[in-house]
Write a protein that binds this DNA or RNA. Structure first.
Length: 214
DNA sequence: ACATTAAGTGATT
DNA sequence: AATCACTTAATGT
């Protein structure tokens, strides 16, 4: 992909990045990477050398506890970046989260060296990073709220809605077991709650399929 | 037709 | 709400 189209990608998807010189550098150093749906992009414990800007698709971000249980945290969507990767890069820590491509996804990866340099070089870049942090923290607080205060049925519905929003498709293709893993619940509980939602007319169920109706 | 995997159910804690 | 022990249903070979 040539630099001009990368520049226009950035302008199109990252409206907060406005400095022409910065955009030029992003196109200069950025590398396009694509991932197939379901592909693991970053696993726990791996070192991160790049900061991704999500151009297309969606990335699912998961946290794993010491017993190997996974918990869904949030999605990164078009126009998002991953503040966690940013922190990991600059402090050369290992990743404490796992990221999986929710669907076929294209990201522009930026080398840690420039990402670091740009902070002092471009006010616009610093602002962008801060905004990304702010947004992510808000998202995380929402997730914490849902775990701490929401009942399981509300949490499940929110999960379904999030997924539909992230993928842009109203029919979710996953098993009850997979959902249960993401929510840290039992498969039976998820099945029963989904059944309730179906009775209420909120969703339509099928094997490996959940259609969100409203 | 058979085996495998997903989903539904009731009882128990 | 989790776990267990099943049953039933859908799907692939």
């Amino acid at each position: 992909m040539d630099k001009e189209s990368i520049e226009s990608w950035v302008q199109e998807h990252f409206s907060q990045i406005t400095d022409p010189a910065l955009i030029k550098e992003i196109a200069e150093y950025g590398l396009i990477k694509t991932f197939k749906g379901g592909e693991i992009i970053m696993d726990y414990g791996s070192y991160i050398r790049m900061v991704p800007l999500v151009i297309k698709g969606a990335i699912k971000v998961l946290r794993e506890d010491d017993q190997g249980r996974e918990l869904f945290l949030y999605y990164l969507q078009e126009g998002d970046t991953c503040p966690a990767s940013f922190t990991c890069c600059l402090t050369s820590k290992r990743s404490f989260i796992k990221t999986v491509a929710e669907e076929d996804t294209t990201v522009l990866t930026l080398p840690v060296k420039q990402v670091d340099d740009w902070i002092s070089k471009y006010r616009n870049w610093k602002d962008f990073i801060m905004m990304a942090y702010d947004f992510r923290i808000m998202e995380l607080v929402q997730t914490i709220d849902s775990i701490a205060f929401m009942r399981m049925d509300e949490r499940l519905l929110k999960y379904l809605e999030d997924k539909v929003e992230a993928t842009g498709v109203r029919t979710i293709q996953s098993t009850h077991q997979e959902i249960a893993w993401d929510l840290n619940a039992s498969r039976e509980a998820v099945s029963r709650l989904l059944k309730k939602l179906e009775d209420q007319g909120t969703i339509k169920l099928g094997r490996n399929r959940i259609e969100l109706l409203k």
